[in-house]
Amino acid sequence: MTLEVWINGELDGFCDCSLASDVVASWGLGDHSGRYAFLYSSQKLSAGRLLRFVVHDACLFGEWSLLLPRQTGAVTTYGSPGSMASRLGSFERYKSFRSLSNDVRMKIALQRYYLSSKAVRSTSIDIILPTYNRAGVLRAAIESVLRQVHQCWHLYICDDGSSDNTADLCSCYVRDSRIHYLPMPHRGVSAARNAGLSRSRSGYVAFLDSDNTWSPEYLSLMLSFLSKQSLDCGFCAALLTGDCDGDKVWLGNFFSWRSCLEVNYIDLNCFVFRRASVGLKRASFDESLRRFVDWDFILAITKESRTAFLCCALVNYYNGDQLDRITSLEYRGARGSDVMDAIRAKHYQLAGMCDNVDAQIACASIDSG
C-alpha cells in the first residue's frame, strides 16, 4: 500500500495521523516529485497505531507530505489536501518573515530548561568574530555579545589586517577579560577564523560576523537546545534585513545534509557546535577558498554529526549593499558558480548517496494509539 499523509502548511507542533497499513518499509519527509529530503530505517506498524512526527511550521519546507514508498495498491490520504495550494512548492531557501514562524513552545521549553540546568548555565562557549575594516559596525556586534543572558563566554575578535580604527575600538573592550583581540596580517576570513579557533579552548564554539548581531537569548537558547537534544551541532534561523525598512526575510530550515549540499540555507552566525564530538580536523576553514567558506565548513562538520534546527529567528543578519564584506568581491559571476560546483563535487565524493537528517525528525516517535 502507498500512504500519503498530507500536511497543511498552516499546521505546527505535533500532527497525529492514524495508519491503516500493517507494514511500512520506510518513511520520510519529501516533496511530491519523489525526491526525498529525509529517509529512515524500516518501521513495522500494526493497524490502528499512531505515527507521531514533528512539524515545526511545515510551511518552512513549502508544501510537504509524509511519503511512503510507492507500490501498487490503494492510496489513503489524511488531512485536507483540498486546503493546500494546487502547486507543491520546492525547497525554499528564503521566505517572508512572520512572527508565527518562531516555535514559541520550543522557545519556552528551552527557557525553562536553561533556568533549571546549572550545568548549562555554567557551560563555557567561545565566540569567533572575524573583522576587516568594519569599525563602524563592529561595536554593535560586540555589544550584542555583552547583552547575552548567558554570560559564560569568551569572545575572540580576529582582526584580518584592518587599517581603520578597529584596534582603537577593541582596546575599549579588552578590559573585559573574556574579550580577546587578535590582530593579524590580512589573509582572508578563513585564516582569521582559524586563528580564533586555534586560540579557543571551550567545549562549544559559535560564530558572529562583524555586521550581524544576536538576540540576547541566542547563547542561552542554543546551548539549552544542544544539551536537551544531545546534539553535536545546532543552528537557528536568521532574520535578514536589507537597506529598506520593513524588508525582512527568514533564512533557516530543518536540517538535511543533502539538501544543504544543493543550496546552503544555514548561516554560520546561527551555528553552534560541540568541539569534542566534531574533532579538530573538521573544525577548520579551507584557507584556499575566498568565498563560500561557511558553506564548505558546515558541510564538512555536519556530515556525520547529530544536527538539528531550532525554529526561532535569533540572529539579525544584514543583507544589504551598503557594506563590503571580507568575501564580497571574490568569485563573482561564472567563477562563483565554478567554485560552488567544486565544493559540491568534493563533498558528494566523500559522502556519496548518504544523508544526515535533522535529529528531531529522525527521532520522531511511534506510539501505540
Rank of each mutant, 00 (worst) to 15 (best):
D31P: 00
N165H: 15
A195T: 15
V315M: 06
A300T: 03
R112G: 08
I366Q: 08
G79Q: 07
C172L: 14
R139S: 12
H32K: 01
W214I: 12
Y181P: 04
A362M: 12
E262D: 10
C363E: 15
S124L: 12
Y40L: 00
Q111A: 11
Q151D: 02
K248H: 13
L67F: 03
S305Q: 05
Y265P: 05
R105S: 14
Q71D: 06
A276C: 14
Y173I: 00
I301M: 00
V145I: 01
F285N: 01
G196M: 11
N102A: 10
R35A: 06
S305W: 07
R325Y: 01
V104S: 07
G336P: 11
L182H: 09
A85N: 05
R147D: 07
S198K: 15
C236F: 05
K346Y: 07
Y114E: 09
I108E: 15
Q229W: 05
Y94I: 06
G136E: 14
I343M: 14
A25W: 03
M84W: 02
D294C: 12
G82C: 01
V120G: 09
A74S: 09
G203M: 08
G336N: 08
V137I: 15
R291C: 06
P185N: 08
S122D: 12
M353N: 10
D338K: 05
I366T: 09
C59V: 07
R344D: 02
D16W: 01
R52E: 14
F292C: 01
K346W: 09
S18I: 00
L146C: 09
F235Q: 12
F14I: 15
L19E: 04
L310I: 06
A300I: 00
C260K: 08
D367C: 15
L129G: 04
N356R: 13
N253S: 14
R139Q: 15
V293D: 10
S122Y: 02
D286I: 11
A195L: 10
C170H: 00
L155F: 09
L68R: 04
P216E: 05
A119L: 06
N165Y: 04
F207H: 10
C15T: 02
S259M: 14
L268H: 07
C244D: 12
S256A: 06
V104M: 08
F225Y: 15
I343R: 12
A351E: 01
L66T: 02
W153T: 14
R193W: 05
S220D: 11
L197S: 13
S220A: 15
P130R: 04
Y94D: 11
H150Y: 05
